[in-house]
Computed example of a mutant assay.
Amino acid sequence: MTEVSGVFVSKPQDSLEKTIDTVGHIVDHCEVKVVDTEGRMVPMGTPGELWVRGYSVMLGYYSDEEKTREFIRPDGWAKTGDQFVLQEDGYARIVGRMKDVIIRIGDKIFPSEIEEFFETHPDIMEAQVFGVPDPKVGEEICVYLRLREGVTITEQDVIDFCKDKIAHYRIPRYIKFINEFTRSSASGKVQKKHLLANILCEISSAH
């Protein structure tokens, strides 16, 4: 993220597996820690929010002291909002954004984990997962899938692919197919808010 610059980097001697499975090793002269919701450090290998402190952290948002205080604590720790797992060897894995966590009947589900699972399917090029508000369970899971050109699969095919591979509560209730995702012009990120608006409109129309 631009507010803290690069904090982890891969090394030339890293294996292909380590390069793919992690975001790299902590850079010199920066401090990082992974904490719980109370700001207490969690054990190595346990998911939590990544905090960063060091020369790479910005001084603040221009003319916005309130937002700066929300992001950077008085002791210099910047709260990234990223869900991370920090390993004993200094390498780390990103789980997803804290604000994107789907909470279904008390279970915390990280969209990135479900997206990565779907992208192991030979006919799926890209998956985008997010939560849809639900009065009974809190949030239901929705996935939009972009398939390989010329391929056709059904919702039932997707459900069958999930069985015995992921927990039943992680199988999306809403499964949609799309040709192309709408992306932001600046970063190229998929605009999930548009996908959410589409599914909410469908749900409303069905009722």
Rank of each mutant, 00 (worst) to 15 (best):
D134H: 04
D134K: 05
D134F: 00
D134V: 08
P135V: 12
P135Q: 05
P135W: 04
P135M: 12
P135C: 05
P135F: 09
K136S: 09
K136N: 09
K136R: 11
K136A: 13
K136G: 09
K136Q: 13
K136Y: 06
V137S: 00
V137F: 02
V137M: 06
V137I: 07
G138W: 01
G138T: 02
G138A: 10
E139R: 03
E139K: 02
E139L: 09
E140Q: 02
E140L: 11
E140D: 00
E140A: 09
E140N: 09
I141P: 04
I141E: 11
I141C: 08
I141G: 07
I141H: 03
I141N: 04
I141K: 03
C142V: 00
C142Y: 06
C142Q: 01
C142H: 00
V143P: 08
V143S: 04
V143G: 01
Y144G: 04
Y144R: 00
Y144V: 06
Y144L: 02
Y144I: 02
Y144W: 03
Y144T: 05
L145T: 02
L145I: 04
L145A: 06
R146W: 00
R146H: 06
R146M: 05
R146N: 06
R146Y: 01
R146E: 01
L147S: 03
L147D: 08
L147N: 00
L147W: 04
L147M: 02
L147I: 04
L147C: 06
L147E: 09
L147G: 02
R148M: 13
R148H: 15
R148E: 15
R148I: 12
R148C: 13
R148T: 14
R148W: 13
E149I: 10
E149W: 00
E149L: 12
E149T: 07
G150R: 09
G150S: 08
V151P: 14
V151R: 15
V151L: 06
T152P: 11
T152K: 04
T152W: 08
T152Q: 13
T152N: 14
I153A: 15
I153W: 06
I153T: 13
I153H: 09
I153L: 12
I153C: 12
I153Q: 13
T154P: 10
T154M: 09
T154L: 11
T154Y: 07
T154V: 14
E155I: 11
E155C: 01
E155A: 05
E155V: 12
E155S: 08
Q156R: 00
Q156V: 09
Q156I: 06
Q156D: 14
Q156Y: 04
D157W: 11
D157K: 12
D157H: 14
V158D: 04
V158C: 10
V158S: 00
V158H: 01
V158G: 08
V158R: 10
V158I: 08
I159L: 13
D160E: 15
D160M: 14
D160I: 06
F161W: 05
F161Y: 13
F161V: 13
F161L: 11
C162S: 09
C162T: 08
C162M: 11
C162L: 08
C162I: 07
C162D: 15
C162A: 13
C162P: 12
K163T: 03
K163C: 08
